[in-house]
Simulated assay, not measured.
Amino acid sequence: MENYVSSHSSSDNGSSSICEVLQILGAKWSFLVLNELLSGPQRFNQLQRNVAVIKTQSLTDTLRHLEQKGLVLRQVFPTVPVTVEYSLTEKGSDFQTALKEMEKWVQKWGNSEQGNIKTSISS
């Protein structure tokens, strides 16, 4: 199956673009973290409260990954204790358009049983 996916994605430009997006975003919780940071910079504990479904280590890993990929900026302030704040870079903020489109899709198709019923009734 893996060979099929890689050979298929290299011949199909749309698939390779999607694979590239998934490699950049990578971490399981990336979309949720990016969406939360769209509201503005947040400290780790604040972010953790706002995305309570994510365990501490997973949030740490996700933030590191997004920082490494250039979507999240980690700023350390020399206070006592040290303050760390996370915000979106220009690259991360630019992902807002894709998130909004995903939200539209979920509103239309999120509950597939109801979506199919609505489609059948309106046809």
Results as ranks from 00 to 15, higher is better:
Asn3His: 13
Asn3Ser: 14
Tyr4Pro: 00
Val5Trp: 15
Val5Asn: 07
His8Gly: 02
Ser9Met: 06
Ser9Gly: 02
Ser10Ile: 11
Ser10Val: 10
Ser10Tyr: 05
Ser11Val: 09
Asp12Asn: 12
Ser16Phe: 05
Gln23Phe: 13
Leu25Ile: 13
Leu25His: 03
Gly26Asn: 09
Gly26Pro: 05
Ala27Leu: 03
Ala27Gln: 13
Trp29Ile: 01
Trp29Cys: 11
Trp29Arg: 09
Ser30Lys: 05
Ser30Gln: 06
Ser30Pro: 07
Phe31Glu: 08
Phe31Arg: 10
Phe31Lys: 10
Leu32Gln: 13
Val33Trp: 03
Val33Met: 02
Leu34Met: 06
Asn35His: 11
Glu36Tyr: 00
Leu37Phe: 02
Leu37Met: 00
Leu37His: 00
Ser39Phe: 10
Gly40Tyr: 02
Gln42Trp: 01
Asn45Gly: 06
Asn45Trp: 03
Asn45Phe: 05
Gln46Arg: 07
Gln46Glu: 11
Leu47Phe: 02
Leu47Cys: 01
Gln48Arg: 11
Gln48Lys: 14
Gln48Tyr: 06
Ala52Gln: 07
Ala52His: 11
Val53Ser: 14
Val53Thr: 12
Ile54Cys: 01
Lys55Asn: 09
Lys55Asp: 08
Thr56Cys: 06
Gln57Thr: 13
Leu59Met: 03
Thr62Pro: 06
Thr62Glu: 05
Leu63Thr: 01
Leu63Ala: 01
Leu63Lys: 01
Leu63Ile: 12
Leu63Cys: 02
Arg64Gln: 13
His65Cys: 07
Leu66Trp: 03
Glu67Ser: 14
Lys69Phe: 07
Lys69Asp: 02
Gly70Asp: 05
Leu71Lys: 02
Leu71Ile: 07
Arg74Glu: 09
Arg74Ile: 05
Val76Glu: 11
Val76Phe: 03
Phe77Tyr: 12
Pro78Cys: 03
Pro78Phe: 04
Pro78Ser: 06
Pro78Glu: 06
Thr79Tyr: 05
Val80His: 11
Val80Ile: 12
Pro81His: 04
Val82Ala: 09
Thr83Cys: 05
Val84His: 02
Val84Lys: 09
Glu85Gln: 14
Ser87Asn: 03
Ser87Asp: 03
Ser87Ala: 11
Leu88Pro: 00
Ser93Asn: 13
Ser93Thr: 06
Phe95Arg: 01
Thr97Pro: 00
Thr97Asp: 03
Leu99Glu: 02
Met102His: 08
Glu103Asn: 08
Glu103Thr: 11
Lys104Ser: 10
Lys104Tyr: 08
Val106Gln: 09
Gln107Ala: 05
Lys108Leu: 13
Lys108Arg: 14
Lys108Gly: 05
Trp109Tyr: 15
Ser112His: 10
Gln114Arg: 11
Gly115Ser: 15
Asn116Met: 14
Asn116Gly: 04
Ile117Leu: 15
Ile117Asp: 03
Lys118Ile: 15
Thr119Leu: 13
Thr119Gly: 02
Ser120Asp: 07
Ser120Tyr: 12
Ser120Asn: 08
Ile121Lys: 10
Ser122Leu: 14
Ser122Pro: 00
Ser122Gln: 12
Ser122Ile: 15
